[in-house]
Design a protein around this nucleic acid. Sequence first.
DNA 1: GGATGTGAAGTAGTTCACAGCC
DNA 2: GGCTGTGAACTACTTCACATCC
Lengths: 231, 231
Amino acid sequence: MSSALKRSKQLSEPTVARLPIYQRITDEWIRRGNIRIDSDTLGQLAGVQSATVRRDLSGLGPLGTRGSGYECILLKSRIDEVLGLDKRYDIIVVGMGNLGRALVNSRNFLTGNARLVGVYDSDPAIVGTEVAGLVVRSIEEPLLPATVGVICTPAEFAQDVADRLVANNTHAMLNFAPKVVTVPIGTAVRYVDFSIELQILEYHLTNGTGPLGGGVLHTLGITAPGATANA
Amino acid sequence: MSSALKRSKQLSEPTVARLPIYQRITDEWIRRGNIRIDSDTLGQLAGVQSATVRRDLSGLGPLGTRGSGYECILLKSRIDEVLGLDKRYDIIVVGMGNLGRALVNSRNFLTGNARLVGVYDSDPAIVGTEVAGLVVRSIEEPLLPATVGVICTPAEFAQDVADRLVANNTHAMLNFAPKVVTVPIGTAVRYVDFSIELQILEYHLTNGTGPLGGGVLHTLGITAPGATANA
DNA sequence: GGATGTGAAGTAGTTCACAGCC
DNA sequence: GGCTGTGAACTACTTCACATCC
């Protein structure tokens, strides 16, 4: 068991998904010159209720100050610590098509200590070219050691890539291929599937859930607030 | 209230998110020459329990046959109907940076009846160029009518774009910018945030949830099955 | 006074287990 | 016999409401 867990209890998945949002907001709040932030403000900006914020943060150990809220710097560093962002992560991306290339070149992809160490493709026309400062390797080559693998291949290769990642001792993966993959227990997989997102939106457009609460959807555990209704 | 809802009760958000997966699997199952599929098989392939499959599908009205499972063609068309995929959807994408371009060129993005009608950017060097068969319009121009808007701008412009989409009568949006946006009730927003996904994975790597159940994560309501453990 | 942290209550989602139907 | 559909039980998550502490 890691040191971060010693001070924090087991966090629920929705809570874990909200922590990066709180962190991003706190960051921005600091940049605007604030010292503290309270659960109400944080909730407003994150689109969740203040009680949810407090419940989430209470899982990180003693943190807030009754009467004045959370000290921004402390909050930020505690979230960093719990998420494990104070460590280094090596990432490899398999599949350098449109999406793979866009990802590795994207400003939003790599957070603090994540480092892109290798990119792979099967297409001989792409292998050997340079992407994001790295030479694209052939998928035939052995994979470099990495803690996180990103699957950007077509669906039909996703399972193969997942198997190879597992064999490579890479036990966390982000799968952009529209395919559910099977992995052994102990391996974490997150799915990002654009067409599913669109289809969910289309469901709500078709079955408009009525005047009240129709637009309040959840992704990553976030409730997009109905501004005009809340305010 | 739409016709699709007449035969189906209100579906929960996790259920809605799983329907596209069932559909994709059923499609593939048909392509392999099968006529029927049962909840057990469907669950296996989707990474959820068979009871969950049955509960999900029971919300679509009478569908299965006791003793022999679900008739593939019927299942597929019923899901299409409930999700509203039998209608046309016009989509506009704002922000033609790396990600926006990759998206509109991606094979996995546009489902059946979704049609890309307009793409926008603020950069004069990009406006006027052609992407995915469309000429990139200036963000200064009025937006084309559309049912779904996709936000691929940097975080600082996300709220502006969301506001303009709402003013444009576009009440469903997919937000790739790392920013929670505020919209009126009746507008649906889904978030796709790569760096949050990575941070969630990093949390699990750091706080390895132990030998048992460590790798079973949820996204879109999917449980990635532990193959070696289940089989 | 003011905001956190948390039992208790409420709500939502999943899983069990089996009656019902083919 | 086999598999769906669903009450009932269970588990997970959120929200309320307030005692607690600064």
